Computed example of a mutant assay.
Amino acid sequence: MIRSGTPWFDTDGNRIHAHGGSVIEVDGTFYWYGENKERSTPGSGIWHWGVRCYSSRDLVNWEDRGLIIPPDQNDPESPLHPEQLLDRPHIIFNPRTEKYVCWIKVMTKGSIQRSTVLTADSILGPYEIVRTWLRPLDMSAGDFDLVVDPHDGKAYYYFERVHSEMICADLTSDFTDVTGYYSTHFPQPQPPFVREAPAYFTRNRLHYLLTSGTTGYYPNPSEAAVARSYHGPFDVLGDLHPSDESRTSFHSQISSVFRHPGKKDLYIAVADRWLPGYLDHGARAHQAFIEHFAPGRDSDEPMEEFAHVDTSIADYVWLPIRFDGDRPVIEWRDEWSPDEFEDA
Protein backbone atom coordinates (compact mmCIF):
# COMPACT_ATOMS: atom_id res chain seq x y z
CA MET A 1 0.00 0.00 0.00
CA ILE A 2 1.04 3.62 -0.59
CA ARG A 3 0.92 5.52 2.71
CA SER A 4 1.40 9.28 2.48
CA GLY A 5 2.88 11.50 5.15
CA THR A 6 4.84 8.73 6.85
CA PRO A 7 8.50 7.78 6.41
CA TRP A 8 9.05 5.66 3.29
CA PHE A 9 11.70 2.95 3.26
CA ASP A 10 13.36 1.03 0.44
CA THR A 11 13.58 -2.77 0.25
CA ASP A 12 16.74 -2.65 2.43
CA GLY A 13 14.89 -0.78 5.17
CA ASN A 14 16.57 2.59 4.58
CA ARG A 15 14.71 5.89 4.30
CA ILE A 16 14.04 6.83 0.66
CA HIS A 17 15.73 10.03 -0.55
CA ALA A 18 14.24 11.15 -3.87
CA HIS A 19 13.08 14.68 -3.02
CA GLY A 20 11.77 17.17 -5.57
CA GLY A 21 11.52 14.06 -7.66
CA SER A 22 9.76 12.39 -10.56
CA VAL A 23 8.88 8.92 -11.81
CA ILE A 24 9.75 7.64 -15.28
CA GLU A 25 8.78 4.24 -16.69
CA VAL A 26 11.30 2.32 -18.82
CA ASP A 27 10.53 -1.13 -20.25
CA GLY A 28 7.95 -1.93 -17.57
CA THR A 29 10.04 -0.73 -14.62
CA PHE A 30 9.34 2.47 -12.72
CA TYR A 31 12.27 4.68 -11.71
CA TRP A 32 11.80 7.26 -8.94
CA TYR A 33 14.64 9.75 -8.69
CA GLY A 34 15.31 12.99 -6.85
CA GLU A 35 17.53 14.95 -4.49
CA ASN A 36 19.45 12.82 -2.00
CA LYS A 37 19.06 14.64 1.34
CA GLU A 38 20.40 11.93 3.63
CA ARG A 39 23.26 14.18 4.85
CA SER A 40 21.38 17.51 4.75
CA THR A 41 21.01 17.93 8.50
CA PRO A 42 21.01 21.36 10.22
CA GLY A 43 24.52 22.77 10.47
CA SER A 44 26.06 20.24 8.10
CA GLY A 45 26.56 22.72 5.26
CA ILE A 46 25.44 19.94 2.90
CA TRP A 47 22.51 20.87 0.66
CA HIS A 48 22.47 17.61 -1.29
CA TRP A 49 24.40 14.40 -1.75
CA GLY A 50 23.73 13.84 -5.43
CA VAL A 51 20.69 12.45 -7.24
CA ARG A 52 19.45 9.08 -6.04
CA CYS A 53 17.25 6.61 -7.93
CA TYR A 54 14.99 3.73 -6.93
CA SER A 55 13.26 1.13 -9.09
CA SER A 56 9.95 -0.70 -8.68
CA ARG A 57 7.50 -2.86 -10.60
CA ASP A 58 4.47 -1.94 -8.47
CA LEU A 59 5.08 1.63 -7.17
CA VAL A 60 5.02 0.26 -3.62
CA ASN A 61 8.30 -1.65 -3.13
CA TRP A 62 11.37 0.37 -4.09
CA GLU A 63 14.91 -0.93 -4.61
CA ASP A 64 17.77 1.51 -4.09
CA ARG A 65 19.74 1.82 -7.35
CA GLY A 66 22.28 4.23 -5.90
CA LEU A 67 23.51 7.67 -6.89
CA ILE A 68 22.90 8.10 -10.61
CA ILE A 69 24.48 11.57 -10.34
CA PRO A 70 27.01 11.59 -7.49
CA PRO A 71 28.15 14.78 -5.76
CA ASP A 72 31.43 16.38 -6.85
CA GLN A 73 33.26 16.61 -3.53
CA ASN A 74 36.49 18.01 -4.95
CA ASP A 75 35.44 21.16 -6.82
CA PRO A 76 33.55 23.82 -4.78
CA GLU A 77 32.75 25.63 -8.04
CA SER A 78 31.04 22.61 -9.57
CA PRO A 79 27.23 22.77 -9.66
CA LEU A 80 27.32 19.23 -8.25
CA HIS A 81 29.33 20.16 -5.13
CA PRO A 82 27.38 19.23 -1.96
CA GLU A 83 27.27 22.85 -0.79
CA GLN A 84 25.75 24.07 -4.06
CA LEU A 85 21.99 24.53 -3.81
CA LEU A 86 21.06 21.83 -6.31
CA ASP A 87 17.32 21.15 -6.68
CA ARG A 88 14.63 19.29 -8.62
CA PRO A 89 16.28 17.04 -11.22
CA HIS A 90 14.06 16.15 -14.18
CA ILE A 91 14.93 13.46 -16.72
CA ILE A 92 13.42 12.95 -20.18
CA PHE A 93 14.30 10.57 -23.00
CA ASN A 94 15.23 11.93 -26.42
CA PRO A 95 14.01 9.48 -29.10
CA ARG A 96 16.24 11.09 -31.76
CA THR A 97 19.56 10.97 -29.89
CA GLU A 98 18.53 7.99 -27.72
CA LYS A 99 19.92 9.88 -24.74
CA TYR A 100 18.44 10.45 -21.30
CA VAL A 101 18.66 14.19 -20.63
CA CYS A 102 18.67 15.52 -17.07
CA TRP A 103 18.19 19.19 -16.16
CA ILE A 104 18.97 20.46 -12.66
CA LYS A 105 18.51 23.93 -11.18
CA VAL A 106 21.13 25.43 -8.87
CA MET A 107 20.34 28.44 -6.69
CA THR A 108 22.96 31.06 -5.96
CA LYS A 109 23.06 34.21 -3.84
CA GLY A 110 20.83 37.10 -4.84
CA SER A 111 17.96 34.93 -6.10
CA ILE A 112 19.91 33.98 -9.24
CA GLN A 113 19.08 30.45 -10.34
CA ARG A 114 20.83 28.66 -13.19
CA SER A 115 20.66 25.28 -14.86
CA THR A 116 23.00 22.36 -15.44
CA VAL A 117 22.29 19.77 -18.14
CA LEU A 118 23.59 16.19 -18.23
CA THR A 119 23.08 13.25 -20.60
CA ALA A 120 23.39 9.45 -20.35
CA ASP A 121 22.80 6.35 -22.44
CA SER A 122 20.87 4.66 -19.61
CA ILE A 123 18.35 5.95 -17.09
CA LEU A 124 20.75 4.81 -14.36
CA GLY A 125 23.71 6.66 -15.87
CA PRO A 126 26.53 7.41 -15.82
CA TYR A 127 25.54 11.02 -16.58
CA GLU A 128 27.94 13.46 -18.21
CA ILE A 129 27.65 17.22 -17.83
CA VAL A 130 27.12 18.94 -21.19
CA ARG A 131 26.15 22.44 -19.97
CA THR A 132 26.79 24.30 -16.72
CA TRP A 133 25.49 27.55 -15.24
CA LEU A 134 23.00 28.00 -18.09
CA ARG A 135 20.66 31.01 -17.94
CA PRO A 136 17.86 29.97 -20.32
CA LEU A 137 16.66 32.93 -22.38
CA ASP A 138 19.06 34.99 -20.22
CA MET A 139 16.61 34.54 -17.33
CA SER A 140 17.01 33.38 -13.76
CA ALA A 141 15.31 29.97 -14.05
CA GLY A 142 13.88 28.37 -10.91
CA ASP A 143 11.57 25.40 -10.37
CA PHE A 144 10.73 23.63 -13.62
CA ASP A 145 9.31 20.63 -15.43
CA LEU A 146 10.24 18.98 -18.75
CA VAL A 147 7.77 17.59 -21.28
CA VAL A 148 8.19 15.50 -24.43
CA ASP A 149 5.34 15.37 -26.92
CA PRO A 150 4.63 11.66 -27.53
CA HIS A 151 3.62 12.28 -31.15
CA ASP A 152 6.35 14.44 -32.66
CA GLY A 153 9.11 14.09 -30.02
CA LYS A 154 9.37 17.84 -29.46
CA ALA A 155 10.28 18.94 -25.91
CA TYR A 156 9.17 21.85 -23.74
CA TYR A 157 10.59 23.42 -20.60
CA TYR A 158 8.24 25.01 -18.05
CA PHE A 159 10.09 27.11 -15.50
CA GLU A 160 9.54 29.81 -12.93
CA ARG A 161 11.19 33.02 -13.99
CA VAL A 162 12.35 33.71 -10.46
CA HIS A 163 9.95 35.88 -8.47
CA SER A 164 8.11 36.92 -11.63
CA GLU A 165 6.13 34.54 -13.90
CA MET A 166 5.97 31.10 -15.48
CA ILE A 167 7.71 30.47 -18.82
CA CYS A 168 7.10 27.78 -21.42
CA ALA A 169 10.15 27.47 -23.68
CA ASP A 170 10.79 25.18 -26.65
CA LEU A 171 13.88 22.98 -26.28
CA THR A 172 16.41 22.34 -29.02
CA SER A 173 16.29 19.02 -30.85
CA ASP A 174 18.91 17.51 -28.51
CA PHE A 175 16.96 18.74 -25.44
CA THR A 176 20.03 20.42 -23.93
CA ASP A 177 19.15 24.10 -24.53
CA VAL A 178 16.28 26.42 -25.43
CA THR A 179 15.56 27.59 -28.99
CA GLY A 180 14.54 31.13 -28.07
CA TYR A 181 10.80 30.67 -28.62
CA TYR A 182 8.78 31.00 -25.42
CA SER A 183 5.52 32.17 -23.86
CA THR A 184 4.76 33.75 -20.47
CA HIS A 185 2.05 32.87 -17.94
CA PHE A 186 0.71 33.76 -14.48
CA PRO A 187 2.60 37.06 -13.93
CA GLN A 188 2.70 38.17 -10.29
CA PRO A 189 4.36 41.15 -8.58
CA GLN A 190 6.29 39.22 -5.90
CA PRO A 191 6.39 36.12 -3.70
CA PRO A 192 4.44 34.51 -2.12
CA PHE A 193 2.01 35.04 -5.01
CA VAL A 194 4.44 33.99 -7.78
CA ARG A 195 3.80 30.44 -8.98
CA GLU A 196 6.57 27.84 -8.64
CA ALA A 197 7.02 24.05 -8.71
CA PRO A 198 5.27 23.48 -12.06
CA ALA A 199 4.06 19.92 -12.62
CA TYR A 200 2.76 19.21 -16.14
CA PHE A 201 0.51 16.46 -17.43
CA THR A 202 -1.87 15.99 -20.35
CA ARG A 203 -5.28 14.32 -20.43
CA ASN A 204 -7.96 14.25 -23.14
CA ARG A 205 -5.84 16.56 -25.33
CA LEU A 206 -5.77 19.19 -22.58
CA HIS A 207 -2.56 20.49 -21.01
CA TYR A 208 -2.47 20.91 -17.24
CA LEU A 209 -0.04 22.79 -15.00
CA LEU A 210 -0.13 22.34 -11.23
CA THR A 211 1.80 24.99 -9.30
CA SER A 212 2.31 26.24 -5.77
CA GLY A 213 2.87 29.68 -4.31
CA THR A 214 6.36 30.83 -3.35
CA THR A 215 6.67 30.23 0.40
CA GLY A 216 9.97 28.40 0.77
CA TYR A 217 9.67 25.06 2.56
CA TYR A 218 6.29 25.98 4.02
CA PRO A 219 3.34 24.57 2.03
CA ASN A 220 0.54 26.68 0.60
CA PRO A 221 -2.62 26.27 -1.51
CA SER A 222 -1.90 24.59 -4.82
CA GLU A 223 -3.37 25.80 -8.09
CA ALA A 224 -4.37 24.01 -11.28
CA ALA A 225 -4.53 25.58 -14.74
CA VAL A 226 -5.53 24.13 -18.10
CA ALA A 227 -4.88 25.00 -21.76
CA ARG A 228 -5.42 23.56 -25.22
CA SER A 229 -1.76 23.86 -26.23
CA TYR A 230 1.64 23.75 -24.56
CA HIS A 231 1.94 27.53 -24.81
CA GLY A 232 -1.55 28.26 -23.56
CA PRO A 233 -3.30 30.48 -22.83
CA PHE A 234 -3.99 28.81 -19.49
CA ASP A 235 -7.25 29.10 -17.59
CA VAL A 236 -6.75 28.99 -13.81
CA LEU A 237 -9.02 26.41 -12.13
CA GLY A 238 -8.04 27.13 -8.52
CA ASP A 239 -6.92 24.96 -5.60
CA LEU A 240 -7.02 21.26 -6.47
CA HIS A 241 -7.10 20.29 -2.75
CA PRO A 242 -10.53 21.83 -1.93
CA SER A 243 -11.18 19.52 1.05
CA ASP A 244 -7.98 20.55 2.84
CA GLU A 245 -9.11 22.98 5.55
CA SER A 246 -5.51 23.88 6.41
CA ARG A 247 -5.01 25.36 2.91
CA THR A 248 -1.58 23.73 2.67
CA SER A 249 -2.13 21.09 -0.05
CA PHE A 250 -2.22 18.47 2.72
CA HIS A 251 1.03 19.99 3.95
CA SER A 252 2.92 19.14 0.81
CA GLN A 253 4.29 20.58 -2.44
CA ILE A 254 3.75 18.70 -5.69
CA SER A 255 6.96 18.10 -7.63
CA SER A 256 5.56 16.10 -10.57
CA VAL A 257 2.55 14.20 -11.91
CA PHE A 258 2.95 10.65 -13.17
CA ARG A 259 0.46 8.88 -15.46
CA HIS A 260 0.44 5.14 -14.84
CA PRO A 261 0.79 3.51 -18.27
CA GLY A 262 -0.86 0.27 -17.18
CA LYS A 263 -3.96 1.77 -15.55
CA LYS A 264 -6.97 3.54 -16.99
CA ASP A 265 -6.96 7.24 -16.14
CA LEU A 266 -4.64 6.93 -13.12
CA TYR A 267 -2.63 10.12 -12.57
CA ILE A 268 -0.51 10.33 -9.41
CA ALA A 269 0.61 13.58 -7.80
CA VAL A 270 4.12 13.09 -6.39
CA ALA A 271 4.73 15.59 -3.57
CA ASP A 272 7.19 16.38 -0.78
CA ARG A 273 6.26 17.04 2.82
CA TRP A 274 9.33 19.11 3.57
CA LEU A 275 8.39 19.99 7.15
CA PRO A 276 6.64 17.01 8.77
CA GLY A 277 6.94 18.69 12.17
CA TYR A 278 4.99 21.80 11.15
CA LEU A 279 1.61 20.24 10.42
CA ASP A 280 -0.36 22.83 12.40
CA HIS A 281 1.48 25.93 11.21
CA GLY A 282 0.35 26.35 7.60
CA ALA A 283 -1.71 29.53 7.97
CA ARG A 284 0.87 31.19 10.21
CA ALA A 285 3.67 30.32 7.82
CA HIS A 286 1.80 31.67 4.81
CA GLN A 287 1.19 34.99 6.57
CA ALA A 288 4.83 35.11 7.66
CA PHE A 289 5.95 34.89 4.06
CA ILE A 290 3.56 37.59 2.94
CA GLU A 291 5.19 39.84 5.53
CA HIS A 292 8.66 38.58 4.60
CA PHE A 293 8.27 39.70 1.00
CA ALA A 294 6.59 42.98 1.85
CA PRO A 295 7.92 46.02 -0.09
CA GLY A 296 11.04 47.48 1.46
CA ARG A 297 12.18 44.30 3.20
CA ASP A 298 15.35 42.52 2.08
CA SER A 299 13.99 39.23 0.72
CA ASP A 300 17.49 37.67 0.83
CA GLU A 301 17.63 38.05 4.60
CA PRO A 302 17.16 34.58 6.11
CA MET A 303 14.02 33.86 8.11
CA GLU A 304 14.28 32.57 11.64
CA GLU A 305 11.78 29.83 10.81
CA PHE A 306 14.31 28.16 8.49
CA ALA A 307 17.20 28.08 10.93
CA HIS A 308 16.55 24.46 11.87
CA VAL A 309 14.94 22.98 8.76
CA ASP A 310 15.97 19.33 8.52
CA THR A 311 15.29 18.08 4.99
CA SER A 312 16.92 14.73 5.83
CA ILE A 313 13.64 13.72 7.50
CA ALA A 314 11.26 15.11 4.86
CA ASP A 315 8.41 12.78 3.91
CA TYR A 316 6.34 12.19 0.75
CA VAL A 317 2.69 12.53 -0.19
CA TRP A 318 1.53 10.46 -3.16
CA LEU A 319 -2.15 10.78 -4.01
CA PRO A 320 -4.27 9.85 -7.05
CA ILE A 321 -5.93 12.65 -8.99
CA ARG A 322 -9.64 12.32 -9.77
CA PHE A 323 -11.48 14.47 -12.28
CA ASP A 324 -14.74 16.38 -12.04
CA GLY A 325 -15.22 16.66 -15.77
CA ASP A 326 -11.92 18.24 -16.82
CA ARG A 327 -11.14 19.67 -13.37
CA PRO A 328 -8.44 17.81 -11.36
CA VAL A 329 -9.12 17.20 -7.66
CA ILE A 330 -6.89 15.62 -5.01
CA GLU A 331 -8.42 14.17 -1.84
CA TRP A 332 -6.63 12.76 1.17
CA ARG A 333 -6.29 9.00 1.54
CA ASP A 334 -4.37 7.43 4.43
CA GLU A 335 -3.46 4.52 2.21
CA TRP A 336 -4.25 3.27 -1.28
CA SER A 337 -2.98 0.93 -3.97
CA PRO A 338 -2.62 1.20 -7.76
CA ASP A 339 -4.31 -2.21 -7.87
CA GLU A 340 -7.59 -0.48 -7.01
CA PHE A 341 -7.64 1.09 -10.47
CA GLU A 342 -8.84 -0.50 -13.69
CA ASP A 343 -6.22 -1.85 -16.06
CA ALA A 344 -5.75 0.07 -19.31
Rank of each mutant, 00 (worst) to 15 (best):
Y157G: 13
A120R: 01
L146K: 10
Y100P: 00
V101P: 08
L118Q: 09
S122M: 01
T172N: 12
R96I: 06
S111F: 08
V178T: 15
P136S: 01
T119C: 06
S164N: 11
G180R: 09
Q113T: 14
Y218C: 09
L134E: 05
K99T: 00
M139I: 05
P198E: 02
H231L: 10
N94G: 01
V162N: 06
P221R: 09
T108L: 02
H163S: 05
S140M: 03
P126T: 07
P150T: 12
N94L: 06
G180I: 09
V148F: 15
H231A: 09
S212R: 09
G216W: 03
T132H: 04
G232M: 02
P219T: 03
Y156S: 14
T132V: 13
D149E: 13
F193Y: 13
T211K: 09
P219S: 04
V236I: 05
P187C: 10
F175P: 04
T215W: 05
V101Y: 06
K99Q: 05
T215E: 09
W133E: 05
E160R: 04
Q188T: 02
P95R: 02
W103H: 13
F144R: 14
A155D: 11
F186K: 01
K99S: 01
D152Q: 12
A197R: 10
L118M: 14
W133Y: 05
A141C: 15
R131C: 07
I129H: 04
I123G: 01
F234G: 00
R135M: 15
P219C: 06
Q190W: 03
V130H: 05
H163Y: 04
D235A: 00
I129D: 04
R161Q: 14
S115P: 03
T211Q: 08
K105R: 14
Y208F: 07
I91E: 10
N220Y: 07
Y157F: 15
P187F: 10
T119Q: 11
A141W: 14
S115K: 15
L146R: 12
G125C: 01
C102P: 01
D143P: 06
I112A: 07
P150W: 14
C102A: 08
T119A: 13
Y156K: 08
S115R: 12
Y100E: 00
F186S: 02
H207G: 12
N204Y: 03
S212M: 08
V130I: 11
I112T: 10
A169K: 02
T97Q: 03
V130A: 06
P189G: 04
G142A: 08
I167L: 01
L210D: 01
H163I: 02
D143H: 08
V226Q: 00
A155T: 14
E196I: 05
V130N: 07
F93T: 04
T116I: 09
S111D: 03
A141G: 14
S173R: 13
L171P: 13
M107G: 14
I91K: 08
D235C: 00
V147Y: 08
D149I: 15
P189L: 06
G216P: 05
A199N: 11
E160H: 07
D170I: 08
P187T: 06
P191E: 00
D138G: 08
P187E: 11
G110Y: 03
A199F: 13
V117A: 09
N94R: 01
A199K: 09
S115W: 05
V117N: 09
